[in-house]
Design a binder for these strands. Structure first.
Lengths: 168, 168
DNA sequence: TTCATTTACTTAGAATACTAATTGCATGGA
DNA sequence: TCCATGCAATTAGTATTCTAAGTAAATGAA
């Protein structure tokens, strides 16, 4: 049992025991979080997907579609579809200018702006629930470790993309 | 600055700063992880979604569709669609028995069984990349904290479901 | 000036996941 | 025995997300 401390690094564990996989755990965290949040937001006709766009617009109103996509971490076709829904539901309006006629600027309607006071605390509540019984340090540790995982995966993805760019 | 240590528990931070939200971070971890894994598995015509079903079947061959759904954490209609794809691709076969003619048992084909040796280590590799530069202890901490978040959210969801059951 | 390239957005088509409703089968109490 | 109830799988319809390919507008180098 001298190697006991090594057990988390043994590859076999990751596929015989999915419950230990960071990817699997992150999926469950994300989905549980989203579903719980959606229980509240749906009462105001806002889905979890729409919530992510609204959250960004509460911070930065009047940005372009492309900027919004980047901030939210979605591809542009996704944003197109989401904005269609948000526009239809009366949460946003789109505006074009003559300065650059390709760009579309997104603005919140007064209704959507008011919703911030109701919806934004809902996320905070779910966050409180999710971190119940955890100390501030533990929460900070979790955030920091997840960010390191994200950075590691982004580095690797960038490295692999470079390689395939060279091949192409 | 006496309250500096409290900053992670202040609700306002969770919606003015999405980057700190556990839900947001988990989403990025999950998606980065899946995409990186898929880069490798797609070379063997296995998508990230299919991989999750195969992984479970490598552990437990011959279970029912319902059991498979539960283990993988998917709803049954999702499993139906996924299995259709897996069957068409020659990874699984379905069998019915007379004992209970409602049930469908899922079996891996010899081809899919062989793929375990190739595909399973790919997950381990991505896991290695994701946790690069982290000590075994840090990895274990991350896993434990995510599990606590999952347990917290599950508790709350169960509590809310009970409440709505009573109302109904 | 002109046209190749880049940028911003859109469309088309697919994969993955859900809820709600349906079908078919099994089972246990009246 | 029979039927209400419950279980297993499916179908139908929708939402969210993606990639690839397309359109229209702006830009910059020859």
């Amino acid at each position: 049992m001298a190697k006991e401390k090594q057990r988390f690094r043994h590859p076999a564990e990751y596929y015989t025991d999915p419950e230990n996989s960071i990817g699997y755990l992150a999926r469950i965290v994300f989905r549980s979080f989203s579903r719980l949040l959606e229980r509240s937001t749906l009462e105001h006709d806002v889905s979890a997907g729409q919530w992510r766009f609204l959250r960004q617009l509460w911070r930065e109103d009047g940005i372009t579609q492309r900027e919004l996509s980047e901030r939210v971490g979605m591809r542009e076709p996704t944003t197109v579809v989401a904005l269609k829904g948000l526009e239809k539901a009366g949460f946003i309006t789109r505006k074009k200018t003559d300065a650059d006629r390709r760009k579309t600027y997104i603005y919140l309607t007064p209704h959507a702006k008011k919703l911030e006071l109701i919806l934004a605390p809902m996320n905070a509540e779910v966050h409180e629930v999710a971190t119940r019984g955890m100390s501030d340090e533990e929460v900070a540790t979790l955030q920091a470790l997840m960010r390191r995982v994200i950075a590691n995966l982004a580095d690797e993805t960038a490295k692999l993309s470079e390689l395939s760019d060279i091949k192409a």
